[in-house]
Amino acid sequence: MEFSPIPFYIVSALVIICAIAMIYFKELIYSALSMVACFMAIAGIYILLNAELVAGAQVLIYVAAISILVIFAIMLTRHRKGDFWLFFHRQSVVTLPFVVVAGIVLTVVLATAAYDSSEEALNPPDEEMARLLFQDYSFPFEVLSLVLLVAIMGAILLAMRERRR
């Protein structure tokens, strides 16, 4: 099976543009929408990587759940309007060159290293995934449920209005 690299370039360009847009928008709601777009595009990357299950989960978790959570939080709070510096930290100018240089250097090093990669796609079928997730990694999976429990508890603890007793 021979894939053309063109779809990858299109999708990854979309990912990067949406990511930058997300950071750039002053209006939070636009940022959130860019984020949704970005996550959708990433789901596309997963499909290219032969990981449909992950792509599906990506759509469900990021595009649906987390984005809605973020949008709710945005709507629960009021936001100010103003010039650029009200939204961007002044140090962002200082950090930019560092991030760019480090990003380029690390990208170059990590993306030119000689990995011992195979020629064919290796991601297993979904049944195998299920076996891995619920058998081999059953213990961390259970612990993950505790992580989510703590998160729910934390959200309630911090955000819920106190019942007067």
Binding site: H89, Q91, V94, T95, F98, V99, A102
Partner: peptide
């Protein structure tokens, strides 16, 4: 955020 920057610089 300056803490984040310090950490980032430390990594670099």
């Amino acid at each position: 955020q300056s803490y984040l920057f310090t950490m980032f610089l430390g990594l670099l």
